[in-house]
Amino acid sequence: MDVQEAVTEGTASVDNGEVKRDGRKQFSMGPSDILEGKLIYDGSVHADGRVEGEVRVSGNIDVASGANVKALLEGANVTLKGQVEGMVTARDKLTLGKNARLSGDIQVRRLQIDDGATLNGHVRMGDFEQQASGQ
């Protein structure tokens, strides 16, 4: 799993997929990209292609419709449009788009599920900050 690890200050080397948007860093993957391992990132991530492992970001996570993700995801706002297998934590809001397929437990403050999305897992909502501080 620990094939690759990108830590906040060291991510400048990943200039291939990094763009600035609204003054915040964004790590952007393409449909043919593969990320395996653990990514801790001070910014937002646009996930596409294949992701396996763990992704924890200070910003938002956006999973594209064609993406295949088998990973733990943690971000402020998490938007899923593709297929995700794994636990998802949204410190603010989790959105499941109409084509999203999520299999895993989720922990959120706010939740929106669009018609057509598929969810199998346990949903925890509410006193998220208390639970997070205990981790």
Binding site: K93, G116, T118, L119, N120, G121, V123, R124, M125
Partner: peptide, 17 residues
């Protein structure tokens, strides 16, 4: 099928299909 609007309080074990 499941639709949850933003702002709703929702918790539980969801099984779909």
């Amino acid at each position: 099928r499941l639709t949850v609007a933003d702002g709703a309080k929702f918790s539980g074990k969801v099984s779909m299909g």
